[in-house]
Design a protein around this nucleic acid. Structure first.
Lengths: 235, 235
DNA sequence: GCTATATGTTGCTATTTGTCAAAATTAGAA
DNA sequence: TTCTAATTTTGACAAATAGCAACATATAGC
């Protein structure tokens, strides 16, 4: 008798997970094994909400693959987008360690996989493993700095400069390609750069007229990278 | 000129330092003693630069008392202010753990005292003392989140809303008083909210005309807190 | 394939914000 | 103090941006 019945758990693959090279590189195989046991890997399809602002924080989440947006809904029901980000960003973790509830909502812009580990366990490991803690501080502060920097870059530019910056951001940081499918609507770009969607669209049209970009729906092709960079710089 | 005062070393008082209640609460008396030995307490008078963006990061700095501004100089020589902050914020430490050089400059808006501890030592302590690490993560993420939040709040408002928000910020967060001396010039407010200084001044004048504030040079008295909050909310 | 709905586009106008310049005031240096 | 330079203030005008509305196009659900 006394059979230990393990619910059919798919074979843990954390040990070979490419993410170990980030914060988790300093964990022993033993600890990684522990994380494997308890971590939950959750798939979200495009458009799905991963969590809402106000939800209690129980998990430390990081993006394994896909693309997400971090955002906030203002009192008058408008969305303000904090950032759009790829793996392996530690998403919405700016406040994971000092608040009870999420300050920002998170949703999937593309089909995405999030790895979630109970925050208590992460806390334990920080306490137990100083090297892990130091690694974690490093990546968390990089994540936070990216968000801060994006905000400053947006804030100092005018409409055209903001759009040029965002296009370069998607091209350079997100897609590493001169041609790409925008993962967001014009309205969402407006919500990211804090401008009206009509003016975002207008600026796209101007850039198109001036031969700086080609657009076909959400497909963007940057034709004149140089001019776009100039607009971004002096905008 | 911001001399590092090393000798004669005044009797170490870290053990009773009110800052121990923050990140350092989890350090043993022994470790606190060690920090006492090596920490440098540096006084800056109003207007002095504490460090410049690009300077190599060698110290973990926190503000013991005073008031500082964190800022950046753009390519065209304009200042962009990231935040204005009081103790016991951990200043400019967003990138202390993942970069070689400061990304932002820091200067004193009032006479200030900064405690500086060699970053290597902090790293060592993180590795050695997990509780300290966890505490540090908590306060660092709160600091980062404050900066992110300020940026978002500014970005979503129009001119009048931004100024109302900033006045409420100084009144509520910095001075805890309805009447206070602005620690910054009109130009610096402009650099913080990313608007022109002429328009900042104009808005001050409007608020004055409407009986919302009284101004006398840098002395501000908020006369109608309610109206200011309404402007901040719907701006 | 078809409708219903959301998203994108453009023009027009009102409002907001920036720029420039001159005058008034304030702060700092000698 | 006295002078000088920087900051503050205001006005007039130009430029940028928002708001609205009509229409086109794409998308999703049936």
């Amino acid at each position: 008798m006394a059979l230990v019945i393990q619910t059919p758990k798919k074979k843990c693959n954390c040990i070979s997970c490419e993410l170990r090279n980030l914060a988790f590189s300093s964990l022993s195989d033993e600890d990684i094994g522990l994380i494997c046991e308890v971590r939950e890997e959750i798939s979200y399809s495009k458009g799905e909400v991963i969590h809402l602002e106000g939800d209690p924080i129980r998990y430390f989440k990081y993006l394994k693959n896909g693309l997400v947006k971090l955002y906030k809904v203002t009192e008058n029901g408008e969305e303000q987008i904090v950032t759009v980000t790829r793996p392996f960003e530690f998403v919405s973790n700016t406040n994971v360690f000092h608040e009870e509830a999420y300050r920002y909502s998170l949703s999937a812009l593309e089909d995405s996989v999030v790895c979630a580990i109970r925050i208590d366990l992460i806390r334990e490991m920080i306490i137990r493993n100083g090297r892990f803690a130091l690694n974690l501080i490093t990546v968390l502060s990089r994540t936070a700095e990216n968000i801060i920097s994006l905000g400053l870059e947006i804030r100092k530019r005018n409409l055209a400069g903001r759009i040029a910056y965002v296009l370069l951001y998607f091209s350079g940081e997100i897609y590493h390609s001169r041609i790409f499918d925008l993962p967001v609507s014009r309205k969402e770009i407006a919500d990211l750069i804090s401008m009206s969607s009509a003016n975002v669209i207008r600026t796209f049209s101007e850039f198109r007229r001036d031969g700086i970009i080609k657009t076909n729906g959400r497909t963007i092709e940057i034709m004149d990278m140089n001019k776009l960079e100039i607009i971004s710089r002096r905008g």
